[in-house]
């Protein structure tokens, strides 16, 4: 074999080697591409899954705001509060109707002073019933679990007081309309004897809740619930002029001051909490 032959041989070998190398490389690229693609795909999938999980967690983590919490609480406590308040109204009307002999048309037979007395009594009892829901957690042994919850006692109390307050205002409005339209009571007087006692009871009740332990408060509350109707009847007997007042500027200022004090008490109760039950 001459030099040309050797060169040709080498070229052929080189070509064959190139082909072999190319084939080999191609094969490797094919397999490696697939592996790489699989790897990339897997990494991509994992990342997608992670992102999806995060998004799901984030969506799930979008905590319902206080309004939505309020809406959910309505099912558990709001309905109960409003039903109790309505039952108090219905019961009061029935009782007064029986006592006055007028049945459901009780306002017609009542004098303005009697209407003022009835309105005062109803508004105080309404305030007490409304505020007593704040003690339910302690009565039923739920207070510890509620204290350590996200909304804590203050959030739950705020919800309860909002339901109570809105229900109470509606009922007071109903009683006002009934007293003015159905009875002989002037509007200002009805407003005075609904609003003033209600605000007094609310301020006093919130004050007690801030400083007394639930056990002491429960006993005191029961006592007050019994004492109030007796006290009002006695007041009517010994000082009837108390129920013949007219709504003046002074009363308006008093009611405004009481409303402010009540709001401050409410805010402090939510901020500072209330005394917890005594030690084991």
């Amino acid at each position: 074999m001459g030099k040309k032959g050797i060169k040709r041989e080498r070229l052929l070998t080189a070509a064959a080697m190139k082909r072999a190398l190319r084939a080999s490389l191609r094969e490797r690229f094919r397999t490696e591409d697939a592996a790489k693609a699989r790897e990339e795909r897997r990494a991509g999938l994992e990342e997608t899954i992670l992102l999806a999980e995060r998004q799901l967690a984030q969506k799930d983590g979008d905590r319902p705001g206080f309004c939505r919490f309020l809406a959910r609480q309505f099912r558990f406590t709001g309905i109960r509060i409003w039903l109790c308040q309505f039952a108090l109204l219905a019961g009061s009307c029935l009782l007064f109707g029986i006592l006055s002999g007028q049945g459901w048309a009780l306002w017609r037979g009542m004098s303005a002073r009697r209407i003022a007395l009835a309105a005062s009594l109803f508004s105080i009892l309404l305030a007490m019933v409304s505020l007593s829901f704040g003690l339910r957690a302690f009565r039923c042994g739920m207070w510890e679990i509620e204290t350590v919850s996200y909304y804590s006692l203050s959030g739950i109390l705020a919800a309860d007081l909002l339901f109570s307050g809105s229900g109470a205002l509606c009922l007071l409005a109903v009683v006002y309309v009934a007293a003015v339209r159905g009875g002989r009571c002037p509007g200002e007087r009805a407003l005075l004897y609904l609003l003033f006692p209600f605000l007094c009871a609310v301020c006093f009740g919130l004050f007690l809740q801030r400083y007394l332990s639930p056990e002491k408060l429960r006993d005191l509350w029961t006592g007050i619930f019994v004492a109030v109707p007796v006290g009002i009847v006695l007041l009517d007997s010994f000082a009837p002029r108390c129920f013949e007042q007219a709504f003046s500027g002074g009363w308006a200022v008093s009611c405004t001051a009481l409303a402010i004090v009540g709001a401050v008490q409410f805010r402090c109760l939510l901020r500072d909490g209330r005394p917890i039950p005594c030690a084991p």
């Binding site: 905590r63 319902p64 509620e146 909304y151």
Partner: peptide, 8 residues
């Protein structure tokens, strides 16, 4: 609800 969980 009081723990602030969503409905889902």
């Amino acid at each position: 609800a009081i723990k602030g969980l969503s409905a889902r």
